[in-house]
Amino acid sequence: MISALILSLSVSVLTMIFSFFPQVEVLPTIANVNLDTVIVGGVASVYRLADLFWYITNVIQGFFFIMGYYAIKFTFKFLAGLFQGIGGGAIN
C-alpha cells in the first residue's frame, strides 16, 4: 500500500510538474525539413519494403538482436565502471 501510494503520488507529481512543458505531438521542422513527415515517410517505406521483400524482416530482426546485445554489453560496462568508481579502483 505504501509502495503503491509512493509510486502513484510520484507519478502524479511528476505528471503535474511536466504538464507545464509543451506536449510533443509531432516532431519539429528544422531548416524547412519537416522531421515528422520524414520519419513517418521513412518508416512507411521500410514497412513497404518489408511487405514486398519479407526476408528484409529477418535481417532487421538480426540487426535488433545485435543492438540488444550491445545494450546489455554497455549496461554491464557502465555498471562495472560505476562499481569501480565506488570501490576506488578495486574492480579492473
Binding site: 507519478v11 511528476l14 505528471t15 503535474m16 512543458f21 509543451p22 506536449q23 510533443v24 505531438e25
Partner: peptide, 8 residues
C-alpha cells in the same frame, strides 16, 4: 507515458 514521456 501520457503525462511525462510525451512532454518536452
Amino acid at each position: 507515458k501520457e503525462g511525462f514521456l510525451t512532454r518536452v
